[in-house]
Amino acid sequence: MVFIFGVNFGEHKLVKKALERFYSLGPQKSARILARHYIHPRAKVGSLQPKTVTALTAELSTMVLESDARKLVVDNIKRLRDMNSYRGRRHAMNLPVRGQNTRNQIENARKLNRVERAG
């Protein structure tokens, strides 16, 4: 088991997938982080040197991740709401924001488009 940024990962997990476990890190960002540390894309967590793990943790600690990143999303929506923009109002009403039809198929919008969005 290897600790990266306070999370325990199994030896056989791909480093790329381990990074993508953190909210706000997707395929693009994780690929770039790998390149920055000379880790090949198919590297497993178990094969990392301890100093690479430390460097990864150090890099992740400078990034906006997890609850901070979620808060950022919420803040952005809140800003829209506060300035009373159309998008903000649509968020507040749990309705599609980008001009979709609302006759049916708006389940995801109902779930996700809120001012206090979960994630």
């Binding site: 000379y38 880790i39 090949h40 894309p41 198919r42 590297a43 094969s47």
Partner: peptide, 8 residues
């Protein structure tokens, strides 16, 4: 094909 470790 980037399947083995590399270092500068």
């Amino acid at each position: 094909t980037a399947c083995t470790e590399y270092a500068p």
